[in-house]
Design a protein around this nucleic acid. Structure first.
Lengths: 190, 190
DNA sequence: CTTTCTATATATACATAGTATATATTAAAA
DNA sequence: TTTTAATATATACTATGTATATATAGAAAG
């Protein structure tokens, strides 16, 4: 999939590897991240397959070694369009180290987990502030990029609501458990 | 992370590889999927590290080759608890072949994309029906498992709303573009 | 009664995604 | 003139995910 993301960016503008990462961070950093370890091997593969072409640049007055500027080829544009108009097979995949733990929170100390949930709420409330501030920035972009940014804030809002709801439910559940313990205790004494 | 998911399931109950997949599909199939290619190598590694123990079973009256039943060890429980009480570092990661394409829809034929968005809406509306039906089933489980199921439906609802909103915005944008074309056409004639 | 089918069960090879780190170049700062 | 910082590319390694191979035995078909 990253292959096509890179192809799409080169469809928009010629770039070298370092610039691709910069571009993604500036424009999609709120939802997507990428590493050089994914970029350079993919550029190499795309070049071998003839989907992109490469020119070594002799830039002056710039730091660092020579840039390798990549352009999408005709073949590349064709392959990109083919992919773009496919109806995607696989469903959305949500991976999160917090949610992975959440499933098993029944095995541990609920007080600690209420604390961790608090941390998550803080994190995503900060994210949301930043996203809302950036939303206006996308107005000049294509509606598609703007809509993706809107999805980001919606997801964020929904998740915060769910986190707060979960915290309440866990605290309620904990109090019920304590009550039950007290009752059992009394019976034992009696 | 899968390492800890498996450890968590074995914390709940002794299982062999095949059963682990079955269990995940029955209980978390709506949000999580796993393959034997992830399960068996992980079981092997966990066993080597002494976090789980293994007994070959001599089951009779059952199909297939001998099962290898795994149990979590004391060391495994310790390692699992350590992980469980960690505050997760990395943020949520949403990966979706549809959203990856969505970013680049400005490069292609909007009519085709409206069609694809329609397919997505159908898919997630079916998912939502299934999820709502299953929600009651989680009442008997731990509140954590139940809350995760609720998150699933919330995410689903939010995404459908966003898809419908996006479809409208794209159609509106298309009409604006056509109007602009007609105006430019007139000017050219005049 | 023996071949074929199906479900159970384990295992490995391979591809893709993601992290960590090594290396080179040059401008600017100390 | 050595060090630091930014630019730029590249590779090694780990984790995740897909595809496929292999084995066993009950059930069904002929």
């Amino acid at each position: 999939m990253i292959k096509y993301a890179i192809l799409g960016l080169l469809h928009y503008k010629d770039m070298h590897g370092y610039r691709i990462k910069e571009h993604i961070e500036q424009n999609f950093g709120h939802m997507w991240s990428i590493n050089y370890g994914q970029i350079y091997p993919n550029l190499k593969k795309l070049h071998e397959d003839g989907l992109i072409s490469m020119t070594e640049m002799n830039q002056t007055g710039e730091k660092g070694p020579k840039r390798k500027l990549y352009s999408i080829t005709g073949k590349g544009k064709q392959e990109f369009s083919r992919w773009l108009e496919e109806s995607p097979e696989k469903p959305m995949l949500l991976r999160d180290p917090f949610l992975m733990r959440f499933v098993f929170y029944g095995f541990g100390d609920s007080e600690r987990f209420v604390e961790i949930i608090g941390n998550q709420i803080k994190r995503y409330e900060n994210d949301l502030k930043r996203r809302r501030k950036n939303l206006k920035r996308w107005d000049k972009n294509s509606i598609y990029v703007k809509l993706i940014a809107e999805l980001g804030t919606s997801l964020n809002e929904m998740f915060i609501t769910w986190l707060k709801h979960s915290r309440e439910e866990i605290l309620k559940d904990e109090q019920n458990n304590k009550k039950r313990e007290r009752k059992t205790g009394k019976r034992r004494i009696a």
